[in-house]
């Protein structure tokens, strides 16, 4: 029928629109960063100088800052998110605590990042400053560590929800087999559940990493916005996202703006690779579980 053909065409048009949108996103970023791309090439990500006044642009400090903050955040958050996943997936069957915990992690995921940033600025920064004074380092308060802590809090819900899904996929009979051999819950967790769920949890870590990697506002507010190469975890620094947020509207020179967009292009590529890898690993895990 004619209407059916038209309707199908409309469906295809919708799909094509979204596909083009993603393609166009990539092309626009390439096009807009062309000026910088031509001038600095691939060395852009290896050069440590970012000097808008003398038109020298290298993104290494921000790339290092991004990796440092997100990796530290992952390390901090991991024990917490695994604990939540174990609690929800192994220790607690139905019940009030389980409901509260589930709801709380949902909310944690739902709170806007601007509020994390604001709260971090007024609550965490003074705490970290105190710590820094005790340790005898320069008491900035803001810096990589503070940003990492805020990020860690923000990504706990992500890792834990994936870890929980993965743990729930561990077949019940092998857990029962473990118990009937007289193993304690702890031994089951370390001997059966975690080894089984390993690759799935790894996927969760990757996806959380992807999220921490691109997070902007919460980081921008507490990282101190310094364009120097970070020398320690207490240093003020910038991530790729935060330097864009800070300088974009102030960039008056074309090459400056183009370099910021070039950073955006790298951010796009990095998060793309991380997410793709995470999705692949979790897909593979699902297939493996199904085939067993």
């Amino acid at each position: 029928m004619k209407t059916d053909r038209i309707f199908r065409a409309v469906l295809y048009a919708g799909g094509a629109f979204v596909a083009l949108l993603v393609l166009l996103a990539f092309l626009s970023l390439c096009h807009a960063s062309w000026l910088s791309l031509k001038k600095f090439g691939i060395k852009f990500i290896l050069s440590r100088e970012w000097d808008p006044v003398n038109e020298k642009f290298g993104a290494l400090p921000f790339i290092v800052g991004t990796f440092m903050t997100s990796i530290i955040a992952l390390i901090i958050s991991l024990p917490f998110s695994i604990s939540i996943a174990l609690l929800l997936g192994v220790y607690l069957r139905e019940g009030f605590i389980k409901k509260v915990l589930t709801y709380a992690t949902d909310l944690l995921a739902g709170i806007p990042s601007i509020i994390y940033g604001f709260w971090g600025l007024f609550f965490l920064v003074p705490l970290v400053r105190k710590l820094e004074m005790k340790l005898g380092v320069l008491p900035y308060g803001v810096g990589i560590l503070t940003a990492s802590i805020v990020l860690a809090i923000m990504i706990v819900p992500y890792t834990s929800s994936i870890a929980r899904e993965v743990i729930s996929m561990v077949p019940g009979d092998i857990i029962e087999a473990g118990f009937s051999l007289g193993a304690t819950t702890r031994e089951i967790i370390f001997g059966i559940i975690l080894p089984y769920a390993r690759s799935g949890i790894f996927a969760g870590i990757l996806l959380a990493f992807g999220r921490a990697f691109g997070e902007t506002m919460a980081v921008t507010m507490v990282i101190g916005n310094s364009n120097c190469m970070p020398k320690s975890i207490f240093c003020p620094a910038n991530t790729m996202a935060s330097v864009i947020a800070n300088e974009f509207t102030e960039a008056t020179k074309d090459i400056h703006l183009s370099s910021l967009i070039y950073i955006g292009l790298w951010l796009f590529l990095f998060t793309f690779a991380i997410n793709l890898l995470g999705n692949l690993v979790i897909k593979k895990f699902r297939v493996e579980v199904k085939n067993e």
Partner: peptide
Amino acid sequence: NILQGLPSIVIGIL
């Protein structure tokens, strides 16, 4: 999935 993983700041640039 790529679209969902795009950092919000990049979407701002776009």
